[in-house]
């Protein structure tokens, strides 16, 4: 009986340790749905069905650190050319868009991919290196609601950098 207890204790301790290790080595919880956005923008319809290239809206991904989010004017350019509701004008999202556009207000999008202040991530270098957006952002063209698909933790960056022979010098990203 005593030995059994010790063995059990050992097993539990090992499992707990392993669990912590796996938890630490793995990723923060990603599951569930993406956050609710001020306008339920369907990436699957725009990028998937309509096949609009990513960089039509995220226009600076190949030349800037930031990928860029489209100006309201970009949305309005298609949906409200000349201020007139045109494409899919009956959809609630487009109606919301029209409201923002008329009031000249920015749309307060909820940020999904966020890096801490001490990480400097150059989008342009990754795009120029021939990486597909989907490699980090997942199959956005199939997502009605965009959600985070990668942990954005350092180990995740590093394994890819090592695989591709990219720099793993700390001072490349942290300063």
């Amino acid at each position: 009986m005593g030995r059994v207890r010790w063995v059990l204790l050992g097993v539990v301790a090992t499992l707990a340790l392993a669990g912590t290790g796996i938890g630490a080595a793995g990723q923060s919880p990603l599951g569930g749905k993406g956050p609710q956005q001020p306008i339920a923008f369907p990436h699957d319809l725009h990028a998937g069905k309509s096949k609009i290239p990513c960089m039509y809206c995220h226009y600076s991904a190949d030349r800037s650190w930031d990928a860029g989010i489209p100006a309201v004017a970009t949305c309005a350019g298609c949906h409200l050319p000349g201020g007139v509701p045109m494409v899919r004008a009956d959809r609630p999202g487009v109606k919301q868009l029209a409201e923002y556009w008329q009031r000249k207000l920015p749309i307060p999008w909820v940020r999904i991919y966020n890096l801490p202040d001490y990480v400097h991530f150059p989008h342009m270098r990754h795009v120029k290196a021939g990486m597909q957006c989907q490699e980090c952002h997942g199959p956005v063209e199939t997502m009605p609601v965009v959600q985070k698909v990668v942990p954005l933790q350092m180990g995740w960056c590093i394994q890819c950098h090592r695989k591709r022979g990219a720099r793993t010098d700390c001072f490349m990203c942290h300063y």
């Binding site: 930031d66 100006a71 309201v72 970009t74 556009w101 000249k104 207000l105 999008w109 940020r111």
Partner: peptide
């Protein structure tokens, strides 16, 4: 929150 430009500025690229 991320706030986009209402009208984009060609000379200003975020980042």
């Amino acid at each position: 929150r991320m706030l986009p430009y209402v009208i984009g500025e060609p000379e200003i690229v975020p980042g």
